[in-house]
Design a protein around this nucleic acid. Structure first.
Length: 906
RNA sequence: GCAGGAAUAACAAAGCGGUCAAAUGUGAUGGGUUUAGGACCCAUUGGCUUAGUGCCUUCGAAGGUUCGAAUCCUUCUUCCUGCACCA
């Protein structure tokens, strides 16, 4: 069979018949599925396909179960990455163009032409859409939209009006990494080396020099303020005076430059290091005046460029004092640390043999002391004496701030970070930043309540959702640049990318019905009516509202697991905030990633396999399988060539069988009963596995195992008849490999589409335990003959098989009941069994008496083996005779046990 | 550091109190088929034994509970992911 031809044939038939384009049908129960929409700044690779394939398998399963299923798709273009990428293409950035050409195989002239964000979006979204269609995803493409569409913008603005009405939207200050020369915010896409600037709060403590004049130090350890012996400045650096909140602060010039934007101070002028060294500032915690000393380790661009010295707890402070010849001075202890003296810093310096403050091993000493004190230290002075350092740290800082003896500044923790333009990133505090306040308790309660009622697949991720709901607080939602929707209450701002993808599933329910509607008429009243039923409607609006009410709520939301901590939890919040309970989400399904031949896919490793390339290489049905079946839903699934080849060859095996099996076969013996018993058992289990999306388990059960069963069946029977088997099996597996199954279905003489056939019902009457156990015994005997034959090193001329007597079966039942050697022996004696054999057998079976199962009767076992007599004879090319133990004259005949017939080779 | 997840044979990955020397797939080895290659089929793939149904040692490490543990409990070790504005 020609894979590509089959896949093309069926995808165009689906398209022509519009089978996935669905509208409300009140006569049918609906299921509404959505999967996270893609971000079209590059083509998709096989990793992206996992979530969509999982969702599609589920969608197709639900159709077989008789539901009316909607599975829509759209494109998310919000935010800065697409803009940044277009800019980089315009600048002929080699990295971007190389990735396009070498990894995604985009013709270089096309790649280089995508300098307009819209062209970029158009090109890649087209590419992605084609790939999804080729994969056979059963999506309703009429509903497609882009998040920068003006109508969608209206919807998002409405969402934000709702959030504001609810009091969830607040305005405030927010620090961000900033480029002064470009005048905009910096995220990872905008920095050299794609570094994500990490912001961190640092405490600034004010040491009073005179009234209104302070020397300001930065510290991560405010609790050590009680042990300050002096202040450090770098004599090589320049220092300045600034006016900040009506006070004069003294700090390093370079530090002041970095802090300028966030503090908004007035520069008063320079001040010489000598002048500072003369000062005797007062420790705000103790009131003691301390001297100012010189130290080379102080970096003028870090913090304030002024440092407080706590020699008992900071190895560098101790070292600098020792370098000045002051090692013997009094060094007050603040923290007690078991295993250390009253000067842990000194202990650590000696332990690591640090020479002076310029010796790099000082870092090691510092790290050890900081870590240990932070977690194991106990305060020995001050207001929080006796408390743990971890707690005292926060309390001391809070007290100092409350008394206006300290304040917080924000620094770039992983700095220095540079903008692509070359200038260093600084911290800017936006005072007109909008937030969504996910910290509001009633809102959290609702989210919790929704979560409690939701199905979470895999269930073990539920804890992560609970954790995220608990931990979310105010979240910035406006940005100064990017594609998407303008912020309705400040049109100079854009709505941030994660905030416009939390309620959009509602929009799919009407997005294909808006052709006649003008964007300007889509105001708050419009959406209030359509989605909330508030206000007055009309015929047109009613149609939209009906569609929404029919499809909502979302029955299953699919995404990769990394979105639990943000998108998926925000999705819950926004739904419970804006909608009533009947519209709340019902289920969330998350999956792991896809690795490539054992390692993570990455651009730098060049091991990304573009989806459309993979499809042309292996065919969509094979890729669907390979991408989804390699691991449990939650864990990463590995894509490798050998697995894909394995799937392909099994598919070939099955195709051949179906081609050959259609008009055949009259056999109706044990093998037929067996394979139908196996099939019906699988049908019975498959439904539950599909419901829980146990995809890997399903694949093993209804694909790999089935191939193995078929191979055994073909061995066991001369005239195979698999027509009835395939009639059911094809439907059951169709969600995995829809193209092939449609083709098979047609080959079996049915009209399309298998897509809407009812999922097979398990015929429980065909599940035959004794037939299956019989077949197991045959397999066992087959193996045993082989083993023995190998051991004696020759092919047998004849084989006799002796089936154990019924009294032995009875004996096992007794053992199961008695569970003890003595008890079994007694009961056996009462039954007048041959005690010599009983002793031997009982000894043997007592070892695993707790796991014995009731044996089948001698007759059942004999019948099974007798039926296979010819088969075994053919297999071993000699006469195989099956006899009962009683009929056997050979001395070994008596060795037989239930399920373990005695075998004699001659 | 905090929070979550995980550790199983050559590799990947099931199993989550007894039927477990441990499914399945891949790889490897041998054999069959084939002009050759590929594909396909069969067998073997912890050790030792044995004309098969036996014994021993294994499921990150150490302890514990139990008649019985890969599975439950405790401690430890290692690895992964996230810790916020980034889609």
């Amino acid at each position: 069979m020609d894979t590509n031809a089959i896949e093309k044939k069926w995808s165009s038939r689906w398209k022509d018949a519009g089978v996935f384009e669905v509208d409300p049908r009140p006569d049918k129960e609906k299921r509404y599925l959505t999967a996270a929409f893609p971000y079209p700044n590059s083509p998709q690779h096989i990793g992206h396909a996992r979530t969509y394939t999982t969702a599609d398998i589920y969608a197709r399963y639900l159709r077989l179960k008789g539901y009316h299923v909607l599975f829509p798709m759209a494109f998310h273009v919000t935010g800065t990455p697409i803009l940044a990428m277009a800019k980089r293409i315009a600048a002929k950035d080699k990295n971007v163009l190389d990735v396009f050409e070498n990894i995604y195989k985009i013709p270089p002239e096309i790649g280089a032409s995508l300098t307009d964000p819209k062209d970029l979006v158009t090109y890649f979204s087209k590419e992605i859409e084609e790939g999804m269609k080729e994969m056979g995803f059963s999506m309703d493409w009429r509903r497609k939209f882009y998040t920068y569409d003006s109508k969608f913008n209206k919807f998002i603005q409405w969402q934000f009006h709702k959030l504001k009405e609810l009091g969830y939207l607040i305005k405030g200050e927010y620090p961000i990494a900033w480029c002064e020369s470009d005048g905009n915010a910096l995220s990872a896409h905008d920095t050299k080396g794609d570094v994500d600037p990490e912001l961190e709060e640092v405490t600034v403590i004010k040491f009073k020099v005179s009234d209104g004049r302070y020397l300001v130090v930065t510290t991560y350890r405010p609790e050590t303020v009680y042990g300050v012996t002096n202040i450090w400045i770098n004599p090589e650096a320049e220092y300045v005076k600034i006016k900040y909140k009506e006070e004069t602060l003294i700090l390093a010039k370079k530090a002041a430059e970095v802090l300028k934007l966030q503090m908004g101070y007035e520069l008063l002028g320079e001040i010489s290091a000598e002048e500072i060294l003369e000062m005797n500032p007062k420790n705000p915690a103790t009131g003691d005046a301390v001297p100012v000393f010189k130290a080379s380790f102080v970096a003028p661009e870090t913090g304030t460029g002024v440092v407080m010295s706590v020699p008992a707890h900071a190895p560098f402070d101790y070292l600098a004092l020792r370098d000045l010849g002051k090692a013997e001075m009094d060094m007050p202890q603040v923290i007690e640390l078991s295993g250390y003296s009253n000067n842990p810093a000194k202990d650590a310096v000696e332990k690591f043999k640090v020479k002076n403050q310029d010796d790099p091993s000082g870092e090691l000493a510092t790290k050890e002391i900081y870590t240990k004190e932070a977690h194991g230290g106990v305060m020995v002075v001050g207001k929080y004496k006796g408390e743990k350092v971890a707690e005292a740290k926060l309390k001391v800082a809070a007290d100092l701030k409350a008394e206006n003896k300290a304040f917080e500044i924000i620094t770039i923790a992983n700095g220095p970070v540079f903008c692509r333009c070359g200038s260093p990133a600084v911290v800017n505090v936006m005072d007109d930043q909008w937030f969504i306040d996910y910290g509001i308790p009633e809102w959290k309660e609702k989210a919790k309540k929704c979560l409690d009622k939701m199905e979470i697949i895999p269930e073990k991720t539920r804890g992560e959702f609970e954790y995220t709901i608990g931990w979310l607080k105010t979240r910035p939602t406006s940005r100064s640049s990017g594609l998407g929707t303008k912020f309705p209450f400040d049109e100079t701002k854009m709505i941030e990318a994660l905030s416009d993808s939390t309620l959009y599933m509602s929009y799919y329910t009407i997005s294909h019905l808006l052709d006649e509607v003008d964007a300007s008429s889509m105001d708050n009243k419009f959406f209030d009516y359509v989605f909330l039923g508030k206000g007055d409607g009309n015929e047109k609006l009613d149609k939209l509202r009906e569609s929404f009410l029919y499809w909502y709520p979302v029955d299953s939301r699919h995404s990769a697991g990394d979105l639990v901590r943000n998108h998926l939890t925000l999705y819950i919040f926004n739904h419970v905030g804006i909608y009533e309970e009947p519209q709340w989400p019902k289920q969330i399904v998350t999956n792991g990633f896809v690795t490539m031949e054992g390692s993570k896919m990455s651009k730098s490793m060049g091991n990304i396999m573009p989806l459309r390339f993979a499809i042309s290489e292996y065919g969509a049905d094979v890729i669907r399988f390979a991408v989804v079946c390699g691991a449990d839903l939650a864990s990463d699934s590995d894509f490798n060539k050998s697995v894909a080849d394995g799937v392909r060859s099994r598919l070939g095996f099955i195709s051949k069988l179906i081609e050959g099996s259609i008009n055949e076969g009259k056999a109706h013996g044990r093998p037929e009963k067996w394979i139908h018993s196996r099939l019906n058992r699988k049908i019975e289990r498959a439904g539950k596995l599909y419901d829980k999306l146990q995809i890997r388990h399903l694949a093993l059960e209804i694909f790999y195992d089935v191939v193995t069963d078929l191979q055994w069946y073909l061995k066991r029977t001369k005239e195979p008849n698999l027509h009835d088997f395939f009639e059911k099996w094809i439907i059951m597996i169709a969600p995995f490999m829809p193209h092939y199954c449609e083709e098979y279905w047609e080959m079996l003489g049915h009209k399309p589409f298998i897509t809407f056939e009812p999922f097979p019902q398990a015929d429980l009457s065909k599940i035959d335990e004794s037939i299956e156990r019989g077949e197991e015994t045959i397999l066992q005997v087959h193996e045993d003959i082989e083993k023995i034959s190998k051991l004696i090193g020759k092919k047998p001329e004849s084989v006799s098989v002796f089936v154990a007597s019924n009294w032995k079966r009875k004996l096992i039942e007794i053992a199961i009941a008695e569970k003890s050697f003595e008890g079994t022996m007694k009961a056996a004696a009462a039954e007048k069994m041959p005690m010599k054999d009983v002793t031997r057998i009982t000894k043997q079976i007592m070892k695993n008496v707790h796991s014995l199962v009731k044996p089948v009767s001698q007759k059942d076992e004999f019948d099974a083996l007798k039926d296979a007599e010819q088969f075994l004879s053919d297999e071993f090319e000699c006469k195989v005779t099956v006899l009962t133990e009683e009929e056997g004259k050979h001395p070994k005949a008596g060795n037989s046990l239930p399920k373990k017939p005695s075998i004699v080779l001659e």
